[in-house]
């Protein structure tokens, strides 16, 4: 019998970051690593700290919107092996592969967490910033599929977790109607937003009025 959960808890992630902090302290004490968490980990944190109810439970990783130096990536790998967790438990793929940092960084407020370290500065994206990024992901899929046409293409492109996270954030931010949704500030162009409005109404995520 085990009390292990399928995905890591916030405390288990904090434990892994603590190990990384000690690793940095031993091998590269001048380094101050900025971790700017977006996605699942940041939502888990808001789920714990606020009234946000996350409809998709758990995350397998911490996505940071900062660059991880190679020396840190190596430490992350070693810690993954030592703890029998995925090697991407801390990764910068959204920074490295998706240009999200360049596009969204100016519109994200980074909030401190209760987890403090000597060599790691951990912050999480604010809910409005996360919603902006989630809208980008969902709207990209809707636009690519040409919603409401091509439902099979849409199913293949639309990550279910992005939809559930978006609904969690809409509810938390009190976005209940089309007017609320259209009033949500979009400082960057989100192609496919009109399709999302239609999708949200069709799926009952927001009311017409």
């Amino acid at each position: 019998m085990t009390n292990q959960k399928p995905t890591l808890s916030l405390e288990e992630f904090a434990d892994l970051l603590g190990q990384l902090d000690r690793f940095i302290g031993a091998h590269n004490p001048e380094l101050n690593l900025e971790v700017r968490a977006i996605g699942g980990f940041s939502l888990m944190y808001h789920d714990k700290q606020t009234s946000l109810v996350l409809l998709r439970k758990g995350s397998s990783d911490i996505d940071t919107l900062t660059h991880l130096p190679q020396s840190v990536a190596t430490m992350v790998d070693i810690i993954a092996t030592n703890n029998d967790v995925n090697s991407d438990w801390l990764n910068d793929c959204w920074y490295a592969n998706h240009n999200f940092e360049e596009e969204f960084e100016p519109y994200i407020t980074w909030e401190p967490t209760e987890y403090t370290f000597k060599h790691i500065d951990l912050k999480v994206a604010n809910p409005k910033g996360i919603l902006l990024m989630k809208l980008r992901a969902v709207c990209d899929a809707l636009e690519f599929a040409g919603y409401p046409d091509n439902p099979e293409v849409l199913a293949a492109e639309l990550r279910t977790q992005d939809v559930m996270d978006t609904v969690s954030l809409l509810r938390f931010l009190g976005i209940e109607t089309v007017a609320d949704l259209e009033a949500f500030p979009r400082p960057v162009e989100i192609l496919g937003f009109d399709r999302f409005v239609r999708y949200a109404v069709d799926q009952g995520l927001v009311r017409e009025r």
Binding site: M1, T2, Q4, L16, K57
Partner: peptide
């Protein structure tokens, strides 16, 4: 951290929606 069992082999006795939701996120 204790040795982790692959999530798809975990004993699901006593699990509720949150645990299955978390398993879904992993899978």
């Amino acid at each position: 951290m204790a040795k982790r069992i692959p999530p798809h082999y975990l004993d699901q006795h006593g699990w509720g929606p949150d645990e299955f939701n978390s398993l879904n996120a992993y899978l």
